[in-house]
Design a protein around this nucleic acid. Sequence first.
RNA 1: GGCCCCGUCGUCUAGUGGCCUAGGACGUCGCCCUCUCAAGGCGGUAACGCCGGUUCGAAUCCGGUCGGGGCUACCA
Length: 537
Amino acid sequence: MAEPAELEERYPPRELPPAAEVTRFAPSPTGWLHIGGIFTASVNLDVARHSGGVYLLRVEDTDQARFEAESLSQFEMGFQYFGIQADEGGEGADATGRYGPYRQSARGDLYMAYVRDLMRRGLAYPCFETPEQAEARAARQKATGALPGYYGEWATWRDAPQDQVRTRLAAGDPYVVRFRSPGLSGHRVSFTDVIRGEITADDNRNDIVILKRSDSPLRLPTYHLAHVVDDHLMRVTLVIRGEEWVSSVPLHHQLFDALGFDRIRYAHVAPLMKQDGGSRRKLSKRKDPEASVGFYLEQGFPVEAVQYYLRGLANARLAEMPLGEALAEPLRLDEFGVAGPLLDMVKLDDISADFVASLSGEEILERVGSWADAHDAPLAAVVRAQRALALRALSVERGQGVASPRKDLRKWADFRAVYGYFFPEVFQPVTDAADPRFGGVSPDLVRALAKGFADGYLPPSPGVPWFDQVRALSASLGFAPSQKAYLRDPDAYPGSIADASGAIRVLITGTRKSPDLEAVCAALGTDEVLRRARAVG
RNA sequence: GGCCCCGUCGUCUAGUGGCCUAGGACGUCGCCCUCUCAAGGCGGUAACGCCGGUUCGAAUCCGGUCGGGGCUACCA
């Protein structure tokens, strides 16, 4: 096993420009990433990139109980989708690199080297307290109003006689290793957080566990030791992590000091929140589907939209910029809000709709296609087989010369519902004249409208007011020429032009809500229009 | 309970003692456009948690209070 001095040489300081930051994102493999994780990872990446530094990914798999095997591939899918490419440690389990390994389960020897070092120097000690005893201790502390933790009179193994320790060791009794905290009760410490400024808090005086129980298959460190050892050895310069860690900083500083490492700067970012009844709470993967990165992939939210939204939450200034500019603009840590923002899916929808509306039909089709490949294979097949039709459908009220492009797509999962009827493979012809979708127009009139429309059908052509044929047909069947006219004297008409064209719309599209009928008919082609119009019996 | 952090429209926020009658964006409501939608145009709605203090003057400073969040694990 290596000595600390050798490790210093094995992992020397990086040769980087002065202002370059080495950042990292260190998720635990417990399923899909949390969307807040994507947020934090993006911030780390952004800071490293814009400072000319290095962004690395480290997998914190020290919790055997919560480990989920598929996490690693889900991480990769998530990072790939959001374009978060790590400079080091990014290629999953086999990641190699100058400062690796990048999975904590593969770094056992490193942690052990430092635990041994601390023990030799009397800064750590074995503790034979059983889980049951720990529970009893916590209960007694609670009952007597004492602060929880392993300290003072409660720290029974802190200064246990050497021979007692040796006996237990010889007997093979399981133990954990605890850090001998130098913290004094009532002692205050302060530090500067890059986002939150100066923070003063009680010093840590708890002898926390740094090495987990000796009877587990792998001898693993707790987060605290792993963080300090890893971020030092990987020569990280700025730890950007979730706010839940702020209160551990005094402890982490003690660990850095005890190990003889330089302290690292911290930036703690506020967590994404969720409205829950009258109050708010941390967005939770367990309770909130939108907390999981898998949700965004399944729904097919455009990455740019999600990133734009998230960046706007981080730096409000960026939310006021156009999307492209905001994505290129460096994030500024000192502009971060310190209170956790509510994740507003309505706002995200709005941003997404705007973004999709800025795309060309080709671009949309490209993205819908690759989304469907993974999440809706039948749709993928249709869209690829009918590329020309799909492009015609996506050119309806979209593309150059259109003043306000359609905003009916927010995410790729919407495509089937919003554009599905263009495709004969997806569309179900409406055959029943009494179908409720005709909205109160009598079956006889529906049949008359269908027949009249089909028999006299004039395909769209430039310069011809196509809709006039619908007006004429509508009028010939007694419908009012406008909604206003109808409302003035409802008894005089079977409905208005809106009802008549609505019925035709249902025949052609299966829904009362669709874009301009002429444009839809142009995209479908005459044969298909007539087939649909004649489907009703 | 202890420690830390935070408190401006429903949401994200602008605001750093007078430019604040508190601005913007999303939402929401209304009107217009209109063959239905998605949009678009125009207009409205809505906030400084509360109580004291400092000051000629406070959203901005101070104290208290209330509310919210985080941590308090052999989870990260």
